[in-house]
Simulated scan of single mutants.
Amino acid sequence: MILLRKLLFPLAILYGIITSVRNYLYDKGILKSYAFDIPVIAVGNLSVGGTGKTPQIEYLIRLLSPKYKVATLSRGYKRKSEGFILADANANAAILGDEPFQYFQKFPQIQVAVDADRRNGITQLLAQKDKPEVILLDDAFQHRKVKAGFYILLTSFDDLFCDDFMLPMGNLRESRNGAKRANLIIVTKCPSEISELAQQNIKKKIGLHVPVFFSFVKYDDKVYNQNGSLNVSATKTQEKVLLAGIAKPKPFFDYLQSGDDTVMTYADHHHFSESDILNIKSQAKDKIIVTTEKDFVRLMTYDFGGKLYYLPIKSKFISHQDQFDTLVLKAMQL
């Protein structure tokens, strides 16, 4: 695999040139970026997948929705629909995509919309009678057609953008220089006990004069379904099926796995077919099935006899949460 990536070095250079030229044209105003008269906060990354955007968007929803009318706008990756859609009672994961539908399920007080064209999506949201006061752009760091008022860049502790290289040799969607657009950076998926020295070393590696925060994934101590919940400690005493279709499932499995559990792994944002469902049921038989929250919203329409559960997660800051909250709330005044 390493050898193959090295062989792809010329393609990575070419891809880097193309993305750099595109960014230059936007930076110089040759290509038009559109700003809006309400706060727009963009959350994204430089690398492909697995940096924890969903729990970070949810953190922002919890922070802002008690004070402001919040809307999220996502592309709706792998949805079976097109154009602008504002979630309503008919929404499901197929129409919205799994992550937007998850927001819609968990936060009924906000508006949830999808549109690959973020400029059009924002325009449509602002045309609503009950228009939002702040829009959270999900995975939109490279969407230069919209000029957000505040950019939050995520990078994983075990895959820092400053140690990475351009696609297809590495995992970067654009040059590391793109990080300069960030108003702040969050190093996600850190060990919860990461030392102050390790944090300072990472800040030096990143080398930018913007605030850098460190967060970790906090797993719930219960798993849930439509009918109730079970303590995670109780699930570890019984055989079960663990199922995940996310970019980096290992921590999920490590947290829950014990004994002779059956582990089933699928590609990120996997669309479950009828044969997949039959296979899952065959593997489970009379066992419970525990999956991620993102997978649950795609599987909940199937009948698993009440045995399908999901494990919620939250993004938690190692320290300086108040400082982060203050910066975001200050951005609301821009």
Rank of each mutant, 00 (worst) to 15 (best):
L4K: 14
L7I: 09
F9K: 08
L14W: 09
Y15A: 15
G16W: 02
I18E: 08
S20C: 11
V21E: 02
N23Y: 07
Y24E: 11
D27N: 14
G29D: 11
L31A: 14
L31V: 06
L31Y: 12
S33A: 14
F36S: 07
V40W: 00
G49D: 07
P55C: 13
E58W: 01
I61H: 01
K67P: 04
A71F: 03
A71M: 10
L73H: 01
L73D: 01
R75K: 11
G76S: 12
Y77E: 04
R79V: 04
G83N: 11
F84C: 11
I85P: 00
L86R: 09
N90V: 03
N90Q: 14
A91V: 05
A91Y: 02
N92S: 13
I95R: 10
I95A: 14
D98R: 04
F101Q: 04
Y103N: 06
Q105K: 15
K106C: 10
F107R: 09
P108S: 15
Q109I: 09
Q109L: 15
A113Y: 01
V114N: 04
G121Y: 05
T123V: 09
P132N: 12
E133S: 11
V134K: 02
I135G: 03
I135S: 06
Q142L: 09
K147R: 12
G149M: 08
Y151M: 09
I152F: 03
I152Q: 05
L154D: 01
D159R: 13
C162E: 09
F165N: 12
L167Y: 11
M169C: 12
M169F: 09
M169Q: 12
L172G: 00
R173G: 08
E174A: 11
A179I: 03
A179K: 06
A182C: 05
A182M: 03
N183V: 05
L184Y: 03
I185C: 08
I186E: 05
C190N: 13
S192K: 15
E193V: 11
I194S: 11
I194F: 07
S195A: 15
A198M: 13
Q200S: 15
Q200I: 10
Q200V: 08
I202E: 05
K203L: 08
K205N: 12
V212W: 02
V212Y: 02
F214Q: 02
F216N: 09
K218A: 13
Y219A: 07
D221C: 07
K222F: 04
V223R: 00
Y224C: 07
N225K: 10
Q226K: 15
N231L: 15
Q238D: 05
K240R: 14
L242V: 03
L243F: 02
L243H: 01
I246D: 00
K248P: 00
P249C: 15
K250M: 10
K250Q: 13
K250E: 12
F252C: 03
L256A: 05
S258L: 06
D260V: 06
T262H: 05
T262L: 07
V263I: 07
V263Y: 00
Y266R: 07
D268W: 01
H271L: 11
S273T: 14
S273A: 14
L278C: 08
N279K: 14
I280G: 03
D286W: 05
I289R: 04
V290H: 01
D295Y: 01
D295G: 03
M300Y: 04
Y302E: 06
D303I: 07
Y310P: 00
Y310K: 00
I313R: 00
K316W: 01
Q321V: 04
Q321G: 06
A331S: 13
M332L: 15
